[in-house]
């Protein structure tokens, strides 16, 4: 069931048309935070091709969230650049952001909002007219099995339900690129199964999905590419491949 209520926005359509070959290109990306974090990323270069599920694995503080925020344009790189189908994220931030669904981590939610209000706000903020927003919210609530919690306050939800609501929020404007920062963290088995189904669905519909995880075992989704970040440096693809093979041989990853 793929959100029949909403037509993609003109911006999203434009970006989708361009999203055929390379989805995201990251070149020489460096990010230095003001103290105490220091240098978070050292010269990271990688490509994420259109329609693939791309996983970025690394310990806490490895720089995974920073990479996602730089792709989103929430942070500006100290050096290097990110392009999404040749659109420079820094220069054409608004256009790029319209095509991204992002779930940040750690994750809280507006206090005082009801579940449907939360999704409705983001639907409207992404430019959906009120009627379409309502239909879209209803469809997402149904898809994520949250219809029963429609009028519940978000602060009263369990962490797992909040995460699912967060993923629903990231999908509210039907973006072609999904960036999910540690989406499985704190999810129970049922939540994981539901999320896996949703992401597989989205993948089949051509979405490019980038997700991060601190451990290989958390990657329930079948990933096309897995890269490993260590202390802000991207491990070479062959080394990452070797680590993944070792992990697979001892049953750490599916």
């Amino acid at each position: 069931m793929q959100h029949p209520a909403t037509e993609p926005s003109a911006w999203t359509r434009r970006l989708r048309e361009k999203t055929r070959s390379v989805a995201v290109r990251i070149e020489g990306l460096c990010k230095q935070y003001d103290s105490p974090a220091g240098v978070a990323l050292h010269n990271v270069t990688m490509e994420i091709t259109a329609g693939e599920v791309f996983a970025l694995v690394g310990a806490d503080g490895a720089g995974k969230s920073t990479v996602l925020k730089l792709i989103c344009g929430l942070l500006t790189p100290t050096a290097g650049r990110v392009t999404i189908n040749n659109l420079d994220v820094e220069r054409e931030r608004d256009e790029v952001q319209a095509a991204i669904g992002y779930l940040g981590s750690p994750f809280g939610m507006y206090s005082g909002a009801l579940v449907w209000e939360y999704l409705d706000y983001f639907a409207r903020a992404h430019g959906l007219p009120p009627d379409s927003a309502s239909a879209r919210v209803a469809a997402l609530l149904d898809r994520f099995r949250l219809t029963g919690a429609r009028d519940a306050r978000v602060e009263g939800l369990s962490r797992a339900t909040k995460l699912l609501l967060g993923v629903a929020r990231a999908l509210v404007h039907d973006p072609p690129l999904l960036l999910l920062d540690e989406p499985t963290l704190g999810l129970d088995a049922r939540g994981r199964a539901l999320l896996k189904r949703v992401l597989t669905d989205e993948h089949h519909h051509g979405k490019t999905i980038v997700l991060t995880s601190p451990t290989l075992t958390d990657l329930d989704v079948n990933c096309d590419t897995v890269r490993i970040l260590e202390h802000g440096r991207l491990l070479p693809a062959d080394r990452a491949e070797k680590i993944l093979q070792e992990a697979a041989s001892i049953g750490e990853i599916p």
């Binding site: 926005s9 911006w11 925020k69 989103c72 929430l74 608004d94 952001q97 319209a98 991204i100 992002y102 940040g104 981590s105 750690p106 994750f107 809280g108 939610m109 507006y110 206090s111 983001f122 903020a125 992404h126 430019g127 929020r169 404007h173």
Partner: peptide, 17 residues
Amino acid sequence: RRDGDANEFDHERMTML
């Protein structure tokens, strides 16, 4: 500040508003 602490401020900045 509350919105920032909850990371929602980042999500707001990602909208088309």
